[in-house]
Amino acid sequence: MNASRGLATKLCALALLTASGGLLASACADNESSLFVRMRMARSGDCTVSCSPGELFWTEDAIDAAYVGSHSATILVGNQIVERGNSDVLRTETSRVQLYEAEVRVFDMEGNAVNDGYVVPINGVVDPGTSSDAGYNCTEVLLLDGATMDALRLQAAELRREVEVVTTMVLRGRTLGGQEVETAEWSYPVRVCFGCSRCVDTIPPTCCSDSSSEDCKDQEDVESACPGRRGTQDCRNLGQTCAEYIASFDR
């Protein structure tokens, strides 16, 4: 038994010495440290995102399930695999990571599963790190799919209060050198309500469903919130008055 352990130790030590650029065989290193989720990026006033660890981020999302059928978030992903390319010896860079899927699960605040989990495609290339600094890029991840949103909408409507859940995700990618990598599981809270946002009807209310008449043409648009934040709703985006729209969920 001791001889076997000694042999395994020597083999891993040999792999550590011969691995080029610090990219280790999966038998000797845990790839969860190579690729990681840094944070959920915030959206600025025009709802754009800057993909950098120095930019603003959000610590939770708050959405109204009456007005969204699913919910996605922009996630900043880091790559700690160091650069391996070398133009002097014509060695190509193989440490960039191509993201390809996310496994998402949703739990209530007691840890009970809200859904069975799902896997969704993602995209983006994360550049390798330089020295002690990781490389970064963003990817869009579906935090709440349609089926999960339907269940949370029903629950929030029945309870007449918001429902708090935690989404967990594991992101997976593949280096240009062919090595599979994935992040450790990362959690993010989302608060879901039903009909708690302010909804504005036009004057006259008939413009909600038909804004082509002369009485409706000069009305100002209602400024909406960025995805991930609750905001005022415009009845013209619903095609009916606010009351009619909310009542349609009871049919």
Results as ranks from 00 to 15, higher is better:
1 M>R: 15
4 S>L: 13
5 R>F: 12
7 L>D: 13
8 A>S: 15
9 T>E: 15
14 L>H: 12
14 L>M: 13
17 L>D: 14
21 G>E: 03
25 A>Q: 14
30 D>I: 05
35 L>I: 05
38 R>A: 04
40 R>Y: 04
41 M>N: 04
46 D>T: 11
47 C>S: 06
57 F>C: 04
64 D>C: 14
67 Y>W: 15
71 H>T: 07
74 T>D: 13
76 L>W: 01
84 R>V: 12
85 G>K: 03
85 G>Y: 00
88 D>S: 13
89 V>E: 13
93 E>D: 05
95 S>V: 05
97 V>W: 00
99 L>V: 01
101 E>A: 10
103 E>V: 11
105 R>G: 12
105 R>S: 14
107 F>N: 09
132 S>Q: 10
133 D>K: 00
135 G>H: 01
136 Y>H: 01
143 L>N: 06
143 L>T: 09
148 T>Q: 09
155 Q>E: 07
158 E>T: 07
160 R>K: 13
163 V>N: 03
172 R>V: 00
174 R>D: 03
180 E>C: 02
183 T>G: 03
190 V>D: 03
194 F>H: 14
197 S>I: 11
198 R>E: 13
199 C>R: 12
202 T>H: 12
208 C>L: 11
210 D>W: 07
213 S>R: 10
217 K>R: 14
218 D>Q: 14
221 D>S: 15
224 S>T: 15
225 A>Q: 13
229 R>V: 14
231 G>S: 14
234 D>C: 12
234 D>I: 13
242 C>A: 08
243 A>R: 13
245 Y>L: 07
246 I>L: 13
249 F>P: 09
